[in-house]
Design a protein around this nucleic acid. Sequence first.
RNA 1: GCGAUCGUAGCUCAGUUGGUUAGAGCGCCGGUUUGUGGUACCGGAGGUCGCGGGUUCAAACCCCGUCGAUCGCCCCA
Length: 405
Amino acid sequence: MSKTPQAIRGTQDIFGAEAEAFAHVVETFERVRRLYRFRRVEMPVFEKTEVFARSLGETTDVVSKEMYSFEDRGGESLTLRPEFTAGIARAYLTDGWRQYAPLKVATHGPLFRYERPQKGRYRQFHQLDAEVIGAAEPQADVELLAMADQLLKELGIADGVTLQLNTLGDGDSREAWRAALVDYFAAHRAQLSEDSQDRLKRNPLRILDSKDPRDRAFVADAPKIDDYLSGEAQDFFGAVTTGLDAAGVAWTREPSLVRGLDYYRHTAFEFVTDRLGAQGTVIGGGRYDGLMESLGGPATPAVGWAAGIERLAMLVGERGDSVADVVVVVEDDAQFARGIEAVTALRREGLSAELVASGSPRKRFDKAVKMGVGAIASISTADGAAKISVRADDTLAARIESLLR
RNA sequence: GCGAUCGUAGCUCAGUUGGUUAGAGCGCCGGUUUGUGGUACCGGAGGUCGCGGGUUCAAACCCCGUCGAUCGCCCCA
């Protein structure tokens, strides 16, 4: 007695209408990414653990408890990628991609994070990813955001999604702001939630988007990044916003929007919806000028975003399985070969075709009807010869009849 | 890692305060009816009630554990 093994927790077997929606998202992304001249890259699904440990920072939750890490047979510590950016950054350094800078690349595929599954969150999940590496100009941020905006529009879901935009300033601005936040929240430490008391050490910026009412009371009066921005950082952000306006991309300023990872600078953004419950971020990203150095490379400016394919697919909604252009029904088993000839001829002419030739012969036509197709060609025997009758609207029927003659 | 709700045929679900051989619809297979036809009827296959313990004369139902799902917290896209 053997039991059927279960799928791994947090993984999905995507099928039917959901799979069609998933494919639609990916196909739309591929089309849009070409319009913006982003080059397709394929990346390994796993990397040396240090690629993620060094880029994300040892103390982040992702690294400390959410990575799928293991030793290979040679004793090397490897990790299933929890995000795209670190691997792409590594490739930029190890593969000499600097010669193509500024480099615009795009990819998509599975990522892995050991988290508690819930709506829109899985242990194996899938993202679209776009990066511009080696471009310090705000124009790169604008182009990247315009691409994300067009993607949402072409998917028909832009109406329910808003672009929240913020700046974290340059490295000095960010540090000064961070220090001010720590001072401010430390003064109210006892009144903060337990989570935020902990965040004060680990990740003080995250207190700003805490959902706990005890924290929210203090967030409103917390130090604002705008008061710490250098003139240069202000100019940069101004250039991004005027660029977005010129590109017709709607945005709202969200001063409490931060990034969880330390390498982010300047632009930070999320496309957010309230239609997906707690996992409302559909695209997120920002500028990560500090990342390359953490991997031992030269200072290299870069911006990027990632989008959750499952979340986009949920917003797109079920798309329904595609139906065959023609169903060929073999009503008499003696005509089986004729049925195969028929579907072959149809498919070669670019018509999708399905063959129905099993089960109770007298119910085969009903089966075809239930498939909800536009055209049905049935093959029976009359006077010892194959008799083909086609049910479809006139032009299609004529085309099918000529193909099957 | 924490909390809440849930887990009965392939699917969607019934199953009354614990009480005989656990049901329906859809789907699947077959038969009859119809015969250019999405009809109607009949029959069939398919379930150790997620899994493992416990309480009881008796458990799908009560208790404990476990696995999984869902929705939050955390984290994050």
